[in-house]
């Protein structure tokens, strides 16, 4: 008789020694993996509170100690990063771009996705297929031509140039269409009989049903625009039009102490991480739900 089978005979399953050992191994592995995620962030935050001198003269530490081993916090790194990033202007720019793009994306994408999922009109599938086809085009193809187009439209050197090219997303339309296809048709039929117009059915009835997906897409769209890096560089050069991402890249390229650079990285990444912690239930739940249905 095998050892595990003996255990099974003598103990109720959930208390068996083997299970406890296995669970321990699982926890150890997961916690070790967790450390690989927490330590870098912790290190970044701690180092951003030290001086470069202290950093250079000590070995590995996760405590904000100075060169003599005493705990000390150097918030002046943050004030320097604040002014280097030109945070006020840059934060406002980023928020304008992200909010407009997120709202526009959710509305316009869902509008198109609903049409592709539910409305019957001439050429629907062909249009959809052409759009899907464009999803395969790598983003780098677009950089130069899009600059030429924005130049032609006269919107370079403005926040509009960060908004217009990203007002919609074919990929999000694709995901939303899948969601709409999964919505029970009967609800819509009932509303139609009651005399509701197409737009009202879409906006008042179907859209609320896919709310979890909308939240996920909203977050990812927001995040994507928040992180967008190459394009803003190409299209806007005026420092007054920088976004958090480009401003951080500028900080990284200039001659600052490493501690100030890390302070900048903390400042720029903090808002998204905070939003994530606040909305994590929706984000994690929605991503998982989207994985199944999408």
């Amino acid at each position: 008789m095998k050892k595990s089978e003996v255990a099974k005979l003598h103990f109720p399953r959930r208390f068996s020694a083997g299970t406890v050992a296995k669970k321990t191994v699982v926890y150890v592995v997961l916690i070790a993996l967790c450390l690989a995620f927490i330590v870098p962030y912790l290190w970044m935050i701690v180092t951003s509170l030290r001086t470069e001198m202290a950093y250079n003269s000590t070995g590995f530490t996760l405590l904000p100690i100075d060169e003599y081993g005493n705990i000390s916090f150097h918030f002046e790194n943050y004030s320097e990063a604040f002014s280097a990033l030109d945070l006020g202007t840059v934060f406002l720019n980023t928020m304008i771009v992200c909010v407009v793009n997120t709202v526009a994306n959710l509305f316009l994408n869902s509008l198109a996705a609903y049409a592709f999922a539910r409305l019957k009109f001439f050429g629907r599938n062909s249009v959809f297929r052409v759009c899907l086809f464009s999803m395969m085009v790598p983003g780098t193809v677009m950089l130069v031509p899009n600059y030429l187009i924005c130049d032609f439209l006269g919107i370079t050197d403005s926040l509009t140039a960060l908004i217009m090219p990203f007002l919609m997303s074919i990929y999000n339309i694709f995901l939303l269409r899948q969601q709409f296809l999964g919505v029970d048709k009967e609800i819509e039929e009932a509303a139609k009989i009651e005399g509701a117009g197409v737009f009202r059915i879409y906006f008042r009835i179907v859209l609320p049903l896919v709310k979890p997906m909308l939240i996920v897409l909203g977050i990812t769209t927001f995040m994507w625009n928040y992180s967008n890096y190459l394009w803003p560089y190409i299209v806007n050069t005026d420092p007054a039009l920088r976004t958090l991402s480009t401003s951080l890249a500028e900080l990284m390229g200039a001659d600052y102490d490493l501690t100030v650079k890390l302070a900048g990285a903390v400042i720029v990444s903090a808002p998204m991480i905070i939003i994530f912690f606040v909305l994590q239930k929706f984000i994690i739940g929605g991503t998982m739900a989207g994985a199944v249905k999408g």
Partner: peptide, 8 residues
């Protein structure tokens, strides 16, 4: 943010 990860 991607750039922040890269800085880190």
């Amino acid at each position: 943010v991607g750039v922040a990860i890269m800085v880190m």
